[in-house]
């Protein structure tokens, strides 16, 4: 992933070290991150379409492919969200308390989402 070279003016540097190569571009790390976001989005849409086609062609593997599709897409989405939070929202150079502020509701929300999803349609028959 992208790593800003910490020159004297920090994140305002136009030079970014990515994959062992120095990249110089207006906007520095912000522009590089935008490029990565764009590429990830394209990969995401393409893989969604490809897997949809695959599911259509191979109905016998639909469950497996469907699960794989969900996992792949969610992982990409989480990476994208993480990039925005880490670089654009400057979490990387903020006080760690802000990371706690962010992770706590995510934890609580994730737990409750998982719980709610476990409810079978139409409720329970006790």
């Amino acid at each position: 992933m992208a790593e800003a070279t910490h020159h004297e003016d920090g994140h305002h540097s136009n030079t970014v070290r990515l994959l062992r190569r120095d990249i110089t571009v207006e906007g520095g790390v912000y522009t590089v991150v935008f490029g990565i976001l764009a590429i990830l989005t394209i990969i995401e849409v393409l893989s969604a379409e490809l897997l949809k086609g695959a599911i259509h062609d191979m109905p016998e593997a639909a469950v497996l492919l469907g699960a794989a599709k969900a996992v792949i897409l969610l992982v990409i989405a989480i990476i994208k969200a993480g990039l925005v939070i880490w670089f654009y929202m400057h979490l990387r150079d903020e006080n760690r308390i802000l990371a706690v502020v962010l992770l706590l509701p995510m934890l609580i929300a994730t737990l409750s989402i998982l719980y709610l999803l476990a409810i079978p349609p139409g409720g329970y028959s006790v």
Binding site: S112, L116, I119, G122, G123
Partner: peptide, 14 residues
Amino acid sequence: DAAGGGDVLLWQNI
């Protein structure tokens, strides 16, 4: 509203 595809328990949970 379960009659409309919803879930009564969803409210209780949230």
